[in-house]
């Protein structure tokens, strides 16, 4: 990833903490954390995912609990848009994205604060009935769901094609563009019918690379952010799977690996990670699993609870190159073939 980020000519990070990506930035602008921010619609569930069983539709208002002088990232972007001369386009995008109606739309030439945008969004959504102060009292905007809001899919008038004819046209357009730019680009996958393409390592177990590495989330963790929540870290420390490498018991026996040992996992390109193994019957014998909540290393992150081991970092096993990218949908190979062995030093 470090090599990849070096390819960018200029890198701006607007962050509350200098995280792993920001470590590589040319300029870092500080911004507010969730506890300092005013955001409408924080943590909302899209209507297509919301439960049909809930009586009310609800949009949350995230309100600041402290003000320590940092600026909201939207206000920082507005400044940049103004100084770089694209404030009009920025405001047009806000109008489109927030679906602002009538008098609540932003004028192209005026500069608006994040607070004003939230104010206008609430006004637009409620048809002028509510203000930010009204919503702030309860911290949310809610209303009884209509039948359509409860069962939205029934009301979608979409056609689901079986034959994606436009893929042929899209492939030809991309071919023209990439040829003009002199970029070699494979468009053979732009086909109108679903096709199956194996991942780069599929079926090839030569050299001992016979396991597929897979990743998942722990139910109580969200990516690496959770490593800074002391209660969740403590739960992880007492959890049989969190931060560990999971291997099927019979597969482990074949490799002479036993419960609790430190093992070495290597992909075909020689990328390696080490961690503690947990043997399980709940994983396929050809797979090796680990959660993807580990790996923080940036120096300026929030204080981490004492004794925190952030666990294995699944991303270490992924190769970010064109060979591992599906040129049709942009998805990276996320189940690389790996081989395992006991780590030097043995048991943890």
């Amino acid at each position: 990833m470090a090599e990849y980020l070096k390819k960018f000519a200029f890198h701006l990070s607007i962050v509350p903490n200098i995280d792993e990506t920001a470590e590589f930035a040319d300029i870092i602008l500080p911004t507010q954390t969730q506890l300092e921010r005013l955001d409408m619609g924080a943590n909302n569930i899209p209507d297509t995912m919301g439960s049909t069983a809930t009586e009310e539709y609800c949009i949350n208002l995230r309100q600041p609990v402290v003000d320590i002088g940092n600026r909201h990232h939207v206000d920082v972007w507005v400044d940049i848009a103004e100084k770089a001369g694209f404030l009009g386009d920025f405001n047009a995008m806000v109008n489109y994205f927030m679906e602002l109606q009538g008098n609540f739309q932003l004028s192209p030439e005026r500069k608006y604060s994040n607070r004003e945008m939230v104010e206008r969004w609430i006004g637009s959504m409620s048809g002028g009935r509510l203000t930010l102060d009204d919503v702030a009292k309860e911290g949310r905007l809610k209303w009884k769901k209509s039948v359509q809001e409860r069962y939205p899919r029934h009301f979608y008038r979409a056609r689901i094609p079986l034959y994606y004819e436009y893929h042929i046209d899209a492939g030809e357009m991309i071919k023209n563009v990439t040829e003009n730019l002199g970029i070699p680009w494979d468009v053979s996958r732009y086909k109108p019918l679903p096709s199956w393409y194996p991942g780069p390592g599929y079926g090839d177990s030569s050299g001992g690379f016979e396991l597929y590495a897979v990743s998942y989330k722990q139910t109580f963790k969200t990516a690496t952010f959770s490593n800074f929540n002391p209660w969740l870290v403590e739960l992880g420390r007492n959890h049989p799977l969190a931060g560990k490498i999971i291997l099927n018991r019979r597969t482990a026996e074949r490799f002479g690996i036993s419960e609790g040992e430190r093992i070495r996992v290597e992909n075909r390109r020689g990328r390696v990670l080490e961690g503690e193994v947990h043997l399980s019957e709940c994983i396929h014998p050809e797979c090796l699993g680990m959660d993807h909540n580990g790996g923080n290393w940036a120096k300026s992150l929030p204080p981490r609870p004492k004794g925190t081991d952030s666990g294995v970092h699944f991303g270490e096993l992924l190769d970010y190159d064109m060979k591992n990218l599906d040129v049709m949908d942009g998805a990276f190979e996320a189940s690389p073939k790996v081989r395992v062995s006991k780590a030097a030093g043995g048991r943890k």
């Binding site: 002391p230 959890h239 019979r250 399980s280 019957e281 709940c282 994983i283």
Partner: peptide, 19 residues
Amino acid sequence: PDIFFSRVHEFESGVYPKA
């Protein structure tokens, strides 16, 4: 720290693929 009034024990039963 290290005191949980409420805990969740986890264990596995069965053998792959019926685990």
